[in-house]
Amino acid sequence: MIGDVSKPWVTRMSDTSYQNIPTTSDAEFGDYFALLKPRVMTLVVFTAWVGLLAAPVAVHPFVGFVSILFIALGGGASGALNMWYDADIDRVMRRTQKRPIPAGKVTEDEAKALGFALSGISVLMLGLASNWFAAAFLAFTIFFYVVIYTMWLKRWTPQNIVIGGAAGAFPPMIGWAVATGGVSIESVLMFALIFMWTPPHFWALALFMRNDYDNAKVPMLTVTHGRRVTRNHILGYTVVLAVLAIAAGFTSIGGYVYLGVAIVLNAMFLWGAVKIWRRDEEVSETDNFLAERKFFKLSLAYLFLHFGAILAEAFIDRYFGVLA
């Protein structure tokens, strides 16, 4: 590295000009970690963990831990590849301008290399730790997020959020596959829960983060079809989501705790969606999109509490199931 002529910012240590080395171009460990989208990874870890524990087959705790770790790493790898490919968009959008590539801390090539390397490692290690079906599922998820969503559909269709949501919805299915080696109605319903939750969650955000997506020329529904249509879509997806969320309560992952949580949360979520649907831009502007912001906040709790309830049911089954 030192004295490399291809990197003019790196000079020989013996050179008196070494003091001119810029301090901002050297990435720190945290910058590479930020490429993995740690906040998204926490959701991946949580939902995959719930999928793993809700499955009817017990997994050795260490194997479970390693599996979740590499599912999260696979999610992180796809995040790095997303940041590599979307660097041009990230430079324009206010929300993403501080990411490592637009901030000038990591180069696009470094992000690409890290993403590919971690994708390979995570798939291979998940296969060795658990089973190759789960590993293939993880590989498909990375492919889906990077190629189908990021490279293809994100810049092409206003349904990008719907399609992208599928990639985020796979982790509980992968967790379930780690334990069972397959797919079942329960894991499909956990997928459906995140899949149908994603569009209203992001469209509510798009309603009050007004100009970001317009500036980046990402075809968000708010831009291509207007804000009225977006409000209609939020309500439509929320109705279907409520049906699926409550249906999950009647499978083996559900129970009284889950059903109680699901009924309350879906009633609140539906009411929030109805309020958004009944409002127009004029009304929203007067209170600075209060209903939309509240709905967005509720959507964060919505997903966490649903999966928390599935987890609670898994513990109840495991520790009190014999008594029932």
Binding site: Y18, T23, D26, E28, F29, G30, Y32, V66, L128, A129
Partner: peptide
């Protein structure tokens, strides 16, 4: 040099990741 100080965090981080990876493979 200040360059080394800046990179030490990165090197320590990578070292810890590699140690953790070896521990995981061993445990598995």
């Amino acid at each position: 040099h200040e360059l080394h100080n800046r990179r030490s965090g990165r090197n320590i981080g990578l070292g810890l990741v590699l140690i953790a990876f070896v521990a995981i493979v061993f445990g598995l």
